[in-house]
Computed example of a mutant assay.
Amino acid sequence: MTEGIKTIIYPVKDLARAKTLFNSLAGVKPVMDQPYYVGYAVNGQDIGLDPNGHAKGMTGPVAYWHVDDIRATVKTLQAAGAQTLQDPQDVGGGKLTALLKDADGNVIGLIQAA
């Protein structure tokens, strides 16, 4: 089951420069500020900056679908023709993420809460 898209993550090359821009854009300070990820909470939407995103296959901002069972969702999407870019992995505290690509090259993000 899905809860829809609640998270958008931007791959960035210069985290400090991106953080300065997004601090201004969001109008709030980050709720998470680490060398590997900076995250904002803006009116119920999670916005993230990932300095490792390009290496994971992200070619631009990725919308993340929040799902109950990430492994089952990955299998379902693979059966429907999606290609896995990143298998489900724990990104901290039991939260899992995965990246897939559809036949048109669009990157699809998945998140399963801890």
Rank of each mutant, 00 (worst) to 15 (best):
E3Q: 14
E3I: 02
G4L: 07
G4T: 03
T7M: 14
T7D: 13
T7K: 11
I8W: 02
I8E: 05
I9K: 04
I9F: 07
Y10W: 15
K13N: 13
R17G: 13
A18I: 02
A18G: 08
K19A: 08
T20R: 12
L21M: 12
F22L: 07
N23D: 15
S24P: 10
S24V: 09
L25D: 06
L25S: 03
A26F: 13
A26L: 12
A26M: 15
G27T: 06
G27Y: 11
K29L: 13
K29H: 08
K29G: 14
V31W: 00
V31T: 13
M32F: 08
D33W: 02
Q34M: 14
Q34V: 04
P35A: 01
Y37I: 10
V38M: 03
V38P: 07
A41G: 11
A41V: 11
V42Q: 05
G44Q: 00
G44D: 08
Q45T: 15
Q45N: 14
Q45H: 14
D46P: 00
G48F: 05
D50F: 11
D50E: 11
N52Q: 15
G53A: 07
G53M: 04
A55T: 05
A55I: 01
G57D: 10
G57Y: 11
M58R: 08
M58N: 11
T59L: 11
P61V: 04
P61E: 05
Y64I: 07
Y64G: 11
Y64D: 09
H66I: 11
V67N: 05
V67G: 09
D68H: 07
D69S: 04
D69T: 00
D69G: 00
I70A: 05
I70V: 01
I70F: 04
R71S: 10
A72V: 03
A72M: 05
A72E: 09
T73H: 07
T73D: 13
T73P: 00
T73C: 09
V74L: 04
V74S: 02
V74N: 03
K75M: 08
K75F: 01
L77R: 03
L77Y: 11
L77A: 09
Q78I: 03
A79V: 02
A79S: 12
A80L: 13
G81H: 02
A82V: 04
Q83H: 11
Q83K: 14
Q83S: 13
T84K: 00
T84M: 06
L85E: 02
Q86A: 13
D87T: 06
P88D: 01
D90G: 09
D90K: 10
D90I: 06
V91M: 12
G92P: 10
G92M: 07
G92Y: 08
G94H: 06
G94E: 08
G94K: 03
K95C: 12
L96Y: 03
A98L: 08
A98E: 05
L99A: 05
L99D: 02
L100W: 01
K101A: 13
D102C: 09
D102F: 04
A103P: 14
A103T: 12
A103F: 12
A103S: 15
D104V: 10
D104A: 15
D104I: 03
G105W: 09
I108C: 02
G109A: 05
G109S: 06
L110S: 06
I111Y: 02
I111S: 09
I111F: 02
I111T: 14
A113S: 10
A114Q: 10
